[in-house]
C-alpha cells in the first residue's frame, strides 16, 4: 500500500524546507516541494541534522520519536515502513562517493552561507571516481577564508591503491569558541583560499589555480609540483 509522508525540515527550530517521500512513484522518491495535491498519510517534523541521521540509519524513526526529536502527525505505524523504504533507497548505496559524503554529513557541520561547502561535496564525488590523483601520503589541506578569517578546513588524501581514502572537514562554527586547531594530519601541500575564489575555480573556466597563485589570490605552501594535479579537481 503506497503512502506519502511529508517531512517538515527545521534549521534551529525554524521551518527551512518541505520534503515529500512519495511511494506512489515506483521505488519511492523524495521530492522537495512546497505542497502536494494528494493526501498525506503522515507529517514528520524534524531538525535537518536529525533528518540526515535518520536517512543514514544512524537513528531510527522510533528512537527520534520517543526522544522527542521528531514529531509525527497521522499514521504512526508508517514509521516502520518508512525506515525500511529509506534503507532501500539510501543505505544500500555503498559507492565510495556516498560513503565520504555520508561521513561529512553525519560527523561534521556544514557552514551555512559558504559556497565552498557545497562545491567541496561535488569535488568529493569527483575525487572518489578519480584514481591515483595523488600518491599515497601526499595529503592536501585547503583552508577556506572569508575576509581573511579562516572558516573551514578540508584535508584530502589517497591510499596506496590509488583511491580516495581520507576526507576530513571542520568549520569554525563547530570549533572551540571559534578557534580552529588544524586537523592533525601531515600534508604535502597547504592552500589558503577565499571562499569566492574557490567557487570561481570550480565554475569559471577562465580562472585556474596557477593564475590564482600567480596573482597572489591564493597562498600555497609545500610541494608546488602538486599544483597541476590539484587543477584536475576544478
Amino acid at each position: 500500500s503506497a503512502f506519502i509522508v511529508q517531512v517538515n525540515v527545521l534549521k534551529d527550530k525554524t521551518h527551512a524546507a518541505t520534503w515529500f517521500l512519495n511511494t506512489r512513484i515506483p521505488g519511492g522518491r523524495f521530492e522537495r516541494m512546497d505542497s502536494i495535491d494528494q493526501k498525506v498519510d503522515a507529517t514528520l517534523t524534524i531538525e535537518d541534522e536529525d533528518y540526515v541521521l535518520l536517512l543514514f540509519g544512524k537513528i531510527s524513526p522510533q528512537f527520534a520519536f520517543l526522544k522527542g526529536r521528531m514529531k509525527i502527525k497521522g499514521d504512526v505505524l508508517l514509521l516502520q515502513k518508512l525506515n525500511r523504504l529509506v534503507g532501500k533507497i539510501l543505505r544500500t548505496r555503498e559507492d565510495l562517493d556516498l560513503i565520504f559524503v555520508r561521513d561529512i554529513l553525519v560527523n561534521s557541520k556544514i557552514q551555512s552561507g559558504l559556497q565552498s561547502e557545497i562545491v567541496f561535496i561535488e569535488i568529493i564525488q569527483r575525487l572518489a571516481r578519480m584514481q591515483n590523483l595523488l600518491p599515497s601520503g601526499d595529503n592536501i589541506r585547503f583552508n577556506i577564508v572569508v575576509n581573511g578569517q579562516q572558516e573551514t578546513e578540508w584535508v584530502i588524501g589517497y591510499n596506496e591503491a590509488g583511491n580516495l581514502s581520507m576526507v576530513k572537514h571542520q568549520c569554525r562554527m563547530e570549533s572551540n569558541e571559534g578557534k580552529m586547531t588544524p586537523i592533525q594530519v601531515p600534508t604535502k601541500l597547504d592552500i589558503i583560499i577565499d571562499d569566492n575564489d574557490f567557487t570561481s575555480l570550480f565554475y569559471n573556466t577562465n580562472f585556474n589555480l596557477q593564475n590564482a597563485i600567480d596573482s597572489n589570490r591564493v597562498q600555497v605552501t609545500g610541494d608546488l609540483t602538486l599544483v597541476p594535479k590539484i587543477e584536475l579537481l576544478f
Binding site: V9, K11, A16, A17, W19, F30, R32, D48, E49, Y51, V52, L55, I89, L90, R93, D97, L98, V101, L105, I110, Q111, S112, G113, L114, E117, I118, I121, Q125
Partner: peptide, 14 residues
C-alpha cells in the same frame, strides 16, 4: 541555505 538534507538529495540524484 546550507541544509544537509538538500546536499544529500543532490548527491543521490547525481
Amino acid at each position: 541555505d546550507g541544509l544537509k538534507c538538500d546536499v544529500l538529495f543532490d548527491v543521490m540524484r547525481s
